[in-house]
Design a protein around this nucleic acid. Structure first.
Length: 280
DNA sequence: AGTCACGCCTGCCGGC
DNA sequence: TGCCGGCAGGCGTGAC
């Protein structure tokens, strides 16, 4: 469910509440998420240790502990952390519980596409999950020129390119759709046909839409909740996502939906160009 | 190497 | 009202 802005919102709230606190006890369900939860290793490595910092890499959260270990967490489609300041009744689909003095963090994930793993802090960036990820949209390496050069090397539709975490990490279906609308590029455009000006516009749109979403604490959708129980407020700022049949905010023509590799793409058929304006 | 279809799960919503 | 199909913000695998 969550993309970069939602995960960043979760990171900030967890960091605010947990950094400097000592973990008293960690408990996990026996049910597997995307992979089995290494419950014993997690408990042994983390109990009694203090949270040093909470980092984010793409859509992954990294909880660094004073024991030299890092818990790697991914929310999948339906996962969320929430913070209970008092005793909280058991909630269905709770798969992890971290008890600190005065508060408890819960991990709830009905669809169980999430992930909880343990790595040594020194090795986590080289883990199978993180090692192959492409740059982040806010990494200094992500420049208009880098984007233009990278797009040149792929014939994949631009929408698929944006969703490929090995190329650029952090975008999911919502913000890929929104960035393409804002840069007026059709989701089916082969990546290598983007003109330099279009790559420039796309670069700007990606950063703008992500920044705006982070400022609004993400997009609340289905079951997404921030750890404090709050809703993301970006929903009303969506220009195409989930707006099939509604008027384009720019030109009034109905928004269309197509399916690309199993995912919905929403776009305006007149604003978003299916072919380059000036073919080379 | 690059791309795509599919499966993993549960919950929800709309149509009949 | 109840059932059923379709759909959901992610990711890994295997086939081509």
């Amino acid at each position: 469910m969550p993309e970069l802005p939602e995960v960043e919102t979760v990171r900030r709230q967890l960091a605010e509440n947990l950094v400097g606190r000592r973990l008293v006890r960690a408990e996990f369900s026996r049910m597997a998420l995307r992979a089995a939860i290494p419950a014993r290793q997690l408990a042994r490595a983390l109990q009694g240790a203090t949270v040093l910092q909470i980092r984010r890499r793409a859509k992954y959260l990294l909880w660094d502990f004073s024991s030299g270990y890092t818990m790697l967490a991914h929310l999948g489609m339906s996962g969320h952390f929430f913070i209970g300041h008092e005793k909280v009744d058991p909630v269905r689909h709770t798969h992890g519980r971290w008890r600190f003095a005065g508060l408890t963090v819960h991990f709830v994930d009905p669809r169980r596409f999430g992930l909880l793993k343990l790595y040594k802090t020194a090795e986590v960036l080289e883990s199978a999950e993180l090692a192959e990820l492409g740059p982040e949209p806010f990494d200094p390496i992500f420049t208009p020129d880098w984007l233009r050069q990278s797009l040149k090397q792929s014939a994949a539709p631009i929408k698929s390119w944006l969703l490929d975490q090995k190329r650029l990490s952090g975008l999911g279906n919502i913000y890929a759709n929104e960035a393409l609308f804002r840069s007026r590029i059709h989701p089916r455009r082969p990546s290598h046909t983007l003109r330099p000006r279009e790559a420039q516009r796309l670069h700007t749109a990606i950063r703008q839409v992500l920044l705006a979403a982070i400022e609004h604490a993400g997009t609340t959708f289905l079951s997404y909740k921030a750890p404090d129980g709050g809703d993301g407020a970006f929903y009303d700022s969506l220009l195409v996502f989930q707006r099939e049949g509604l008027e384009c905010h720019r030109c009034g023509v109905p928004i269309e939906r197509i399916v690309q590799s199993g995912r919905s793409s929403f776009f305006c058929p007149t604003c978003q160009k299916a072919a380059p304006r000036h073919p080379s």
